[in-house]
Every structure is written in structure tokens, then in C-alpha cells.
Nucleic acid binder design. Structure first.
Length: 492
RNA sequence: GGGGGCAUAGCUCAGUUGGAAGAGCAACGGCCUUUUAAGCCGUAGGUCGGAGGUUCGAGCCCUCCUGCCCUCACCA
């Protein structure tokens, strides 16, 4: 305890004085009759004098001697409370003097308006529910430091009202996705996060170990293969909203764990998925945010369906002036764009590279890019009109990939060939093993299906108008702050 | 991993050419029964991210380290 601040010492002294008065500074259950926001917003004159109970955190105190006003914040908003020495009595009014900003209290009293017209609870009793022994960030500017806001999200939520609102909106948006899919006859399922073979994508996995079975397991990079097993098992419309884990870089569009929505519809295809995704996104945007137009950085984005559909080869030609299957042309353009060793790279890598450097960042309005080269998508059915292409689309918006969907490959023999081909050219760090169990199930028959993966955090970036993924994830990955841990350990 | 930037009181921020570390809010003491970022009087609060170096003298210049931000690379 040798390291405590003057602020903490003062607050601990007040805490002791409360105890001396027989008051537990960490009270128990306190049934509220109103949340602050609704009480204030829906107040009507005929409520005047009604006994109410409110609770929350003290965010401002304006004391005038024998009368004290305070702002009580909860997650719905704030309500002013008023303590008068005459009304609450000398004993309790002394306790008011022992309160600090940040303390959590319950107040019972009669609701009414002050002479300036502010809805106020005129306290008759006060219950201390939690004494804060550290000071809060400043009341006016809030907490600005982006590092502190991410590391100490609770302080961010307390001090910055908009952070709380965005966290609540995130929940509403995800509930909206669930509601939309449920209404369309999809059911939510949960599939393994820990997988013996990390499949469904080509990414470096996190590795862990199960002691009792003595086996290594991988945190999933995708739920795809398990969801398809459910299709094999006869579940016709399934979705999962859950975390994927990829052991890769961190950026304002990437977090090592991120929330993915995957949807599978038996007897559908990539076209049915196009209709589903544009309608789903527009519905949620309208229902939760009340609009379809959003500002993203310096761009305006309109989510109104239908979204334009462009073939990969066409858009590559338009933006990059490259013929998709002309290898020499591709190498020429890649070299122009500054790709290293363009002559030695596989043409698929070059396609990817040229696409990212010329097209991806340019597509701001939500756009379906369809018919990518088949080899980029080993789980996708090939296009009957041109087997070099796949029945696939990606949704590009605001310069990044929002969603990816296939007509799912359901021919087990072709699937096996694709897996083998993928293993041959897999990147270092990825796990290369044939998922025989998955293939066996497909060999028993998998219905044709449309499948969709949508990055939920990225959708939230657009709907909440945040250009950094960290701003829509409550606890983004941060390097541990050791100085903090040490001081916490020594003072605790 | 490369390049650039930031780090000053609990919080939000100033700090000039290298010459005595500041303000607002918060805190503490006092006055005050209708305030709204309450007000007035007074007080206290600092390892200037860390470690070295240059200098008579470093918050400021140099080197290294740590964390974060931006950007490039990586990343279906």
C-alpha cells in the first residue's frame, strides 16, 4: 500500500468515516424503479411527487452548503438528484459530504422539476453502493488518450457517453443480424473453436494443447467445415456468429480474434447469398441505425440494395488494365505496380497483388465482385460456363472486404483434388493436413448450398462510422502493460 | 519487420532559442439551500514514459529501451 496516491488516500479516509457511521460503502442489491434516461425523457407533469428509486455513478456534484445537486449516470443516461440538509437530516447529509465523483449510489425520493425545469429526484434517502477509491477521468473532456481508452475500457465507457452508446449499438446490430436470419428460417448453431485440423481458410492458427488427451489443438480460423457437416447432416439453414482466431498482424482492419458471421443455405447458391447479404445488411442498418447512408473517413457510403455486381476479370481490366489469364500482361503490370520478384511469383499471387493494389482500395460503394479465379477458392464450386472461375463473390466496401460467399462445392472427389492442390502450394506457417473426416461426410452426400462469411466487426465499422477496428471491439488485443501490472501487484 | 509521429499533475492540455515546470477540471480547507463544466477565497499536487550521454545548465539536443498511433509490408 506504500504506493497509493493522495487521491486514493483521501477516498479511503472517507470510506473509513462511512464505516464509522455504520454505513457499508459497498452496499447490496438496490432495486431501481426507473433507469435515468427513461425517467427524464418520459417525465410528465402528473408524475410530480412520485416516489422513485434510481441508482448510478456520481459524475458531477454541485454543492451549495446545505443543498447539493449531483448528476447520477447509468447506462441509459443521467438524472439530477438533489440533497437538502433539511430534507435528509443532518446525519445523512454528512454522508453526502463523504461522496466522491465516481461513487455508485442509490437514491430514493420524489421526482419533480427544479425551477429551471430540470427533472430531478429530490432525495429522501441515500444508499452507498460502491465507493470508488480512484479518481475518474475529467468530466468535461472525458478520456481521450486512445491507449488508455482501449486498455481501461471501463473508464472509457464511464467517461465517454458515445463509447457506451456504440457498445450498446454493437449489441443491437448483432441482435438484428440474428433476428433477420431467424426470420428467414435460419437457426443458430455453435461449432468447435478448438479444432484438430484448422480448416476453412488459409491462415496461420494459434496452437494450444489438451493435457488429458495429450493432443495439440488449434483455435479455429474458420467454422466452415463444421457448418458444412451440419448441411450433410440435414440441417438446411444454419448460421453461426462467433469468434475466429488468426495468428497474423494487427491493423485497423485486423484483430487476431474477430467476430465472423457464417451462413449456409441448403439448395441455395452464391446468387441467393447475394440477395440475402444485401437485404440483411440494409435491414439491420435501417432498423438499428435508422438510415442507409454512412460516412466513412472521407467517403459517403450508401448501403441501399441492390448492390452493383461486377465480374472479377472485368473490374481488373477496368482498374488495372490487365487481362486476367494473360500471364505476361499480369507480370508486366505487377512490376509496374512495384511488386517485388514479379517474374518468380505464382500467377495467383500476382493476381491477388494487382487486385489489392489497384481495385480493392478504390471500391467504396458496396459492390459484389464475382467469378474470381477458381484456384483462389478451394471450397467453392467452379463456374459451369468457365471452369477456370468460381461461383463466388466478395463484397467490397470502403476499401476492404466485408463478406465472401460461394456456391459451395459438394462433389467430394473434386473437393479432395482441391485440398491436395491447396496443400501443395500452402504458405509457410499454415497447417497442412487433409481433413478426412470432413471428406467422408461429404462422400455421404452434401446438398448444394450457398454459403456466406461476413466480418461482423467490419460491418460495425461502417455502421458506427469508425475507421479503426479497435473502436468497435471492446477489448482489442493490446500488448500487456507491465508497468501497470507491477504497480497493481505491489499496491495490492 | 521498415518508415514517420506521440509520451509533461488523476484527466484534458500549454511549455518560446537549452536558462526557476504551468493552466483548466479533479483534490484538500473555507463561504454558500435551485445548481447545470455552479461560483468566490485559499492550499496542495511532478522520477516531464525508462536508462544513458552532450552541456556550466536538458521537459527541450543525441543514443538505446518500452508502450501507443499513423503508414508500408505481411494477412483469402
Amino acid at each position: 500500500m506504500e504506493n497509493i496516491s493522495k487521491f486514493t488516500a483521501d477516498r479511503l479516509a472517507k470510506l473509513r468515516r462511512m464505516r464509522e457511521k455504520g454505513i457499508d460503502p459497498y452496499g447490496g442489491a438496490f432495486p431501481k424503479s426507473y433507469d435515468a434516461g427513461p425517467l427524464v425523457d418520459s417525465y410528465s407533469e402528473d408524475q410530480e411527487g412520485e416516489s422513485v428509486a434510481v441508482a448510478g455513478r456520481l459524475m458531477a456534484v454541485r454543492s451549495h452548503g446545505k443543498s447539493t445537486f449531483a448528476d447520477l449516470h447509468d447506462w441509459t443516461g443521467k438524472v439530477q438528484v438533489h440533497f437538502s440538509q433539511k430534507r435528509v437530516g443532518d446525519e445523512l447529509y454528512e454522508v453526502v459530504g463523504l461522496l466522491d465523483l465516481g461513487d455508485i449510489v442509490g437514491v430514493e425520493g420524489k421526482v419533480g422539476k427544479t425551477r429551471t425545469g430540470e427533472v430531478t429526484v429530490f432525495a429522501e434517502s441515500l444508499t452507498v453502493l460502491s465507493k470508488a477509491v480512484h479518481p475518474l477521468p475529467e468530466k468535461y473532456h472525458g478520456l481521450r488518450d486512445i491507449e488508455l481508452r482501449s486498455r481501461h475500457r471501463s473508464l472509457d465507457l464511464i467517461a465517454n457517453r458515445e463509447s457506451m452508446e456504440q457498445a450498446l449499438q454493437r449489441s443491437e446490430i448483432i441482435a438484428g443480424l440474428r433476428g433477420f436470419l431467424s426470420e428467414q428460417g435460419f437457426i443458430e448453431v455453435e461449432t468447435p473453436m478448438m479444432q484438430a485440423i484448422p480448416g476453412g481458410a488459409a491462415a496461420r492458427p494459434f496452437i494450444t494443447h489438451h493435457n488429458a488427451l495429450d493432443i495439440d489443438l488449434y483455435l479455429r480460423i474458420s467454422p466452415e467445415l463444421y457448418l458444412k457437416r451440419l448441411l450433410c447432416g440435414g440441417m438446411e439453414r444454419v448460421f453461426e456468429i462467433n469468434r475466429n482466431f488468426r495468428n497474423e498482424g494487427v491493423s485497423n482492419k485486423h484483430n487476431p480474434e474477430f467476430t465472423m458471421l457464417e451462413v449456409y443455405e441448403a439448395y441455395g447458391d452464391y446468387e441467393s447469398m447475394m440477395r440475402l447479404v444485401e437485404e440483411m445488411v440494409a435491414t439491420v442498418a435501417r432498423d438499428v441505425m435508422g438510415r442507409l447512408e454512412f460516412t466513412f473517413g472521407e467517403h459517403e457510403i450508401d448501403l441501399t440494395p441492390p448492390w452493383p455486381r461486377r465480374r472479377f476479370s472485368d473490374i481488373l481490366e477496368e482498374y488495372a488494365d490487365v487481362e486476367l489469364f494473360d500471364g505476361a500482361d499480369l507480370r508486366r503490370r505487377a512490376t509496374e505496380l512495384g511488386v517485388d520478384d514479379a517474374d518468380e511469383q505464382h500467377h495467383l499471387a500476382l493476381i491477388d497483388e494487382v487486385f489489392k493494389r489497384t481495385v480493392e482500395l478504390e471500391i467504396i460503394h458496396p459492390t459484389f465482385i464475382t467469378h474470381q479465379p477458381a484456384e483462389l477458392a478451394p471450397l467453392c464450386r467452379r463456374s459451369p460456363e468457365d471452369p477456370r472461375l468460381s461461383e463466388r463473390f466478395e463484397v467490397l466496401v470502403a476499401g476492404f472486404e466485408l463478406a465472401n460467399a460461394y456456391t459451395e462445392l459438394n462433389d467430394p472427389a473434386v473437393q479432395r483434388e482441391e485440398f491436395v492442390r491447396q496443400l501443395e502450394r500452402r504458405d509457410e506457417g499454415t497447417v497442412g493436413r487433409l481433413d478426412e473426416e470432413f471428406l467422408l461426410e461429404m462422400e455421404h452426400g452434401m446438398p448444394p448450398a450457398g454459403g456466406l462469411g461476413l466480418g461482423v466487426d467490419r460491418l460495425l465499422m461502417i455502421l458506427l462510422e469508425k475507421t479503426s477496428l479497435r473502436d468497435v471491439i471492446l477489448f482489442p488485443l493490446m500488448r500487456p502493460d507491465n508497468s501497470d501490472v507491477e504497480s497493481a501487484a505491489s499496491s495490492g
